[in-house]
């Protein structure tokens, strides 16, 4: 890209360039603010994902231990029978969440309707841990997805901010300066020409 924009050196063009510069500065300021807020959101979601992952790992380990113990102690048939005592399983309503124009997945979790049998306390405990683990997994998925989408948007916005800051605005400033210099030069030429004409007329008169 050349250092200045190729335009005709006219006053109209100068006005147009000034208008474009004002607009570019406005967009640059807004995009920079947006970028800062997006980065803050990204770090908030990253912290959330980290916290959930740390919470989830022991829960997951516990859930696997309970599952192995339940299947080996009660057998598949009894565990299956226990599962059928659930009135309504855990459900989730999937939707979208819009963070500053960045769309991410969101899930509204509906709690399962369970009846504590009381007969097998370890199975009840297994169910409680499993439900908690699934909830954490869903939340982790949401946070991870948000991080990915926010990251993409940050990259895109950063490119725009940099293009405006390092390419477009300096180029417009250089072109405006060039046009101003051109006009000044033209004015000086005009003055010199007038002086010359004046002196020629004076010579002719004398």
């Amino acid at each position: 890209m050349s250092s200045i924009i190729r335009v005709r050196p006219t006053k109209i063009e100068l006005i147009r360039l000034r208008r474009r510069l004002a607009l570019a500065r406005k967009v640059h300021r807004i995009l920079r603010e947006r970028l800062t807020i997006l980065v803050n959101e990204f770090f908030a979601r990253l912290r959330e994902a980290y916290r959930i992952r740390r919470e989830m790992e022991p829960e997951l380990r516990k859930a696997y231990t309970y599952a192995i113990a339940a299947y080996s102690f009660y057998g598949e048939r009894l565990v299956g029978y226990y599962r059928s005592t659930l009135r309504k399983g855990m459900r989730g309503i999937a939707g979208t969440e819009n963070i500053m124009g960045v769309k991410t997945y969101a899930v509204e979790i509906i709690e399962p309707e369970t009846t504590e049998t009381g007969a097998a306390r370890d199975l009840d405990e297994f169910r409680r841990i499993a439900v908690n683990t699934i909830k954490l997994l869903i939340k982790l998925g949401e946070a991870d997805e948000a991080c990915i989408n926010l990251g993409k948007e940050i990259k895109r916005t950063k490119r725009k901010v940099n293009a405006l800051e390092y390419m477009l605005i300096p180029q417009l400033l250089r072109t405006i300066r060039y046009l101003r210099m051109k006009f000044e030069e033209r004015e000086r030429e005009e003055k010199a020409r007038l002086k010359k004409v004046k002196s020629m007329l004076e010579k002719r008169r004398s």
């Binding site: 607009l23 967009v27 995009l31």
Partner: peptide, 14 residues
């Protein structure tokens, strides 16, 4: 110029 104006317009699309 159109792109800049469009960027300015859609900044509040959310």
């Amino acid at each position: 110029e159109k792109m800049l104006a469009e960027e300015y317009r859609v900044i509040n699309r959310h």
